Simulated assay, not measured.
Amino acid sequence: MVTEFFMAMIPPTVTHQEKQVHVVNGKPVFYEPPELRTARAKIKGHLAIYKPDQKYTEPIELVAKWCFPRGKHKDGEYRSSKPDTDNLQKLLKDCMTSVGFWTDDALVCREIAEKFWADIPGIYIRVSEL
């Protein structure tokens, strides 16, 4: 089984790493700042359209190409500035789990993550069974 699509959008630059913590009665309490909640809702809203009929249950490969608005950069030029791909991927995989792409993101056994500057911003995603 293969699921492949492009979500035309301006990808969020806020990542899972930006969770916040404060102390209540001497214990840490973690929370998501509003920007992270907004980014999560945006990604989940776009992903819902492409949710497969059946969840993946076997080992998979996840390919994600993050295409950010290019501004002064060349179309297709690699983006070497923040956010880091591992932080982008964490948020994406959490959202894909929540939407129902797979039973657990631990099934992602092979992963390719790239980030570019692009004329057409969005996130290209391909999920395939290994």
Rank of each mutant, 00 (worst) to 15 (best):
Val2Ala: 06
Met9Glu: 01
Met9Phe: 04
Pro11Cys: 08
Pro11Ile: 00
Pro11Met: 03
Thr13Val: 06
His16Thr: 03
Glu18Lys: 07
Lys19Met: 07
Val24Trp: 02
Val24Asp: 00
Gly26Tyr: 05
Lys27His: 04
Lys27Gln: 10
Lys27Gly: 02
Val29Asn: 04
Phe30Tyr: 10
Pro33Val: 02
Pro33Glu: 03
Leu36Cys: 04
Arg37Gly: 00
Arg37Ser: 09
Ala39Asn: 00
Arg40Trp: 07
Arg40Thr: 11
Arg40Leu: 04
Lys44Tyr: 03
Gly45Asn: 15
His46Cys: 10
His46Pro: 01
Leu47Phe: 02
Ala48Phe: 12
Lys51Glu: 04
Pro52Asp: 03
Gln54Cys: 15
Gln54Val: 14
Glu58Arg: 12
Pro59His: 08
Pro59Val: 05
Pro59Asn: 09
Pro59Leu: 07
Pro59Glu: 08
Ile60Lys: 01
Ile60Trp: 07
Glu61Pro: 04
Glu61His: 12
Pro69Trp: 09
Arg70Pro: 11
Gly71His: 12
Gly71Gln: 12
Gly71Arg: 08
Lys72Asp: 08
His73Asp: 09
His73Leu: 06
Lys74Thr: 14
Lys74Phe: 14
Lys74Gly: 13
Gly76Asn: 08
Glu77Thr: 09
Glu77Val: 09
Glu77Lys: 05
Tyr78Leu: 14
Ser80Asp: 13
Ser80Val: 13
Pro83Asp: 06
Pro83Asn: 02
Asp86Leu: 11
Asn87Cys: 14
Leu91Gln: 03
Lys93His: 08
Met96Phe: 12
Met96Asp: 05
Met96Cys: 09
Ser98Cys: 13
Ser98Met: 11
Val99Phe: 14
Phe101Gly: 02
Leu107Asn: 06
Val108Asp: 00
Cys109Asn: 15
Arg110Glu: 15
Glu111Gly: 07
Glu111Trp: 07
Glu114Val: 12
Lys115Arg: 14
Phe116Ile: 08
Phe116Gln: 02
Trp117His: 13
Ala118Lys: 04
Asp119Gly: 13
Asp119Tyr: 06
Asp119Ser: 14
Ile120Arg: 06
Pro121Ser: 04
Gly122Ile: 14
Ile123Asp: 00
Ile123Ser: 02
Arg126Cys: 06
Arg126Ser: 04
Ser128Phe: 04
